[in-house]
Computed example of a mutant assay.
Amino acid sequence: MSQYRIAVVVGSLRKDSINRQLANAVVRLAPPEFEFRQLQIGDLPLYNQDDDADQAAPVKRLKAEIAAADGVLFVTPEYNRSLPGVLKNAIDNASRPYGHSAWAGKPAGVLGASVGAIGSALAQQHLRNILAYLDMPTLGQPEAFIQVKEGTFDADGNLGEGVRKFLQGWMDRYVDWVKFHAAGR
């Protein structure tokens, strides 16, 4: 039975997203006491402060899923040198109304992949700025800017050997990060 529940937020809606592939592959590197669940963000309404008093059912669902989690793993692509709008919308919806953020205090990890050489570095930096404001302690090192190329994933969606070793080290640090913050509650 899992002892730690991690909410996974993939910043892409595309079914065959390389970031969804990365999320699916990296969670296999975690120890058995960690359970990962990808959260749905594509059905959220655009954030509108007028709705704060009576949030839509998908927003309430998202907030409840985050509240039930011991940590959050963000896996994001980079769109136009920043994070995707759908991810920002999910963050905004779950952080409102002011003073009732579902994100506060949840230890976070940030990953991202791209076919480009900088592997979502700018999107991750923008996301980290937002997470700092939301009071989410975010793993700083190692950073993981994954450039997807031949051999990153095998035919079954597993990580290739070179990137697997690096991401195993990242996952080991994230596991320790979540455990550290869970112990402090």
Rank of each mutant, 00 (worst) to 15 (best):
A132Y: 07
Y133T: 14
L139V: 11
V9P: 01
Q124V: 07
P45C: 08
Q55V: 14
L134Y: 08
A68V: 14
S12D: 00
A67P: 00
D51K: 07
V110S: 02
M1H: 14
G85T: 00
A104L: 05
Q3K: 12
K60A: 12
L167S: 04
R96I: 08
Y98T: 12
L111Y: 12
L127M: 11
D70Y: 01
V72H: 12
L73Y: 13
M1I: 07
L167K: 03
K88A: 08
G109F: 12
R5P: 02
Q38E: 15
E143K: 07
V178N: 06
I6Q: 05
G116H: 11
F153V: 05
N93I: 04
P31G: 15
K106L: 13
S114A: 01
Q3D: 12
R128T: 03
G184Q: 15
R128N: 02
I66Q: 02
Y4N: 10
L29D: 00
E65P: 07
D154K: 02
Q38R: 07
V59H: 02
G157M: 02
A90C: 00
D176W: 00
E78G: 05
A132G: 09
F34M: 07
A104E: 11
Y79V: 09
F166E: 14
N48H: 06
I18S: 01
R37W: 04
I18L: 09
A123T: 07
N93L: 00
D52S: 04
S12P: 06
R20V: 07
V86L: 08
S95E: 06
Y98R: 07
A104K: 13
S12N: 02
N89D: 04
A23I: 02
V10Y: 04
Q38M: 15
L73W: 10
A7C: 04
Y4L: 06
A57P: 01
L122S: 13
Q141Y: 10
V59E: 07
Y98P: 10
